[in-house]
Design a protein around this nucleic acid. Sequence first.
DNA 1: TCTGGGGTCCTAGGACCC
DNA 2: TCTGGGGTCCTAGGACCC
Length: 425
Amino acid sequence: MIQTTALIDGNNFYASCEQSLDPSLIGRPLVILSNNDGCIISRNPEARNLGIKMGKPYFKISSQLRKLKVVVRSSNYALYGDMSQRLMSLLRKHCEQLEIYSIDEAFASFSSSSEQELHQWARNLRILAIQQLGIPIAIGFGTTKVQAKLANFLAKTIPANAGIFNLLTAEDPEYWLKRIAIEDVWGIGNKLAYWCRMKGINNALQLRDMNTQELQSKSGITGTRIQQELRGESCIPLTPKSKPKQETCVSRSFRRPITTLDELLQAMARRVIIASEKLRRQRQLAGAITIFIRTSPFLPSFYSQSASKKLDIPTDDTSILLKETMELTREIFEPYKALIKAGIIMQKLQSKKHIQQHFFINHNSKIQKKRENLTRVIDQLNNRYGHGTVTWAICGSINEWQMGSKDQSNVSTTLINKIPIIKAE
DNA sequence: TCTGGGGTCCTAGGACCC
DNA sequence: TCTGGGGTCCTAGGACCC
């Protein structure tokens, strides 16, 4: 019996989440915008059929969208995160081994099942996802992760496949591989796809059969692994246990460019506070931090700057991280640069469970405990009454240059006062 | 006026050591 | 002061993913 790998994912996940909570959206073209209402990051089939492309800047096509009567929503990540957890717990119930790969995707593996059993299992899972979550899913089968990924692509994009495709048992696998453009192969990005096209490699089948040496010389081990997997030899293993994060980043754009140190300090303070909260939620400590600022990459005289600092003692303490960040910010600030984005990366993360004891610091001191208690209370208040209820004065009050989203759906599965209400006639 | 945010992996090259 | 080869570790940057 051959080992089978499956890739299961939610179709147009963000758009489907919105439709699931607001059925009036079903059947109407719908797009979801990125943070700051920057660009299109999800769209339902109705919007896709109107020719609306992924990644398009919103300001360039907003009038066209109005004309076409497309519904536009700002993104609501709290909602998508919650729906993701529900989807994953459904999948866990129905898979032996599951690796959660992204907010809307998971790999599964099966040691022994007949083709019919697998197909029946997949049909059943699709029904459950619709019934319990209102989210359509697609399922692809292969021997390796790359094959499963491509099978999933064929399940979704070829209507006749109805959301399920098995590359192992397909009558003519080569016919199907030929139908997958080189850009659509998992692991082949812009640069590699362009190089492939130049060489006359235009689809997944040609990539599978091309000269390995040549591929290796261009893309190293990453490219040859994809080729091996296309040929059915597994070299990207399933990793069901999620690894602890190596770094955590909080980065945001401004609604309008900022040029003063005061504004930048406030912006950085907000980011480091969010980042510290993230660390505590993940039960991790940062051993180093990097901050960065940049001007618009779409304008001439692009400017970007960053600065890092190693911390003597790894920490998740907001006030310590704030102090370090403020110092770094003062160091790299330059006047008259129209900054549009700033962020902080927490690095050299380690688990809070086994803290490396410092010779001069007593981690169990009274003062240390008091600080931790204060932080815990602040976190609890913010969780309960909304983010930013209690915060540091350095953040300033709400400013016009901060991020903005206009059309967020006013529903939530995580805040009690925004639970959707069903009215009886 | 307006172009997202958060990650991982790999590689080349520098610093350092014997 | 100059000479040689070989190894490890770290870092920055590129490419890619969703």
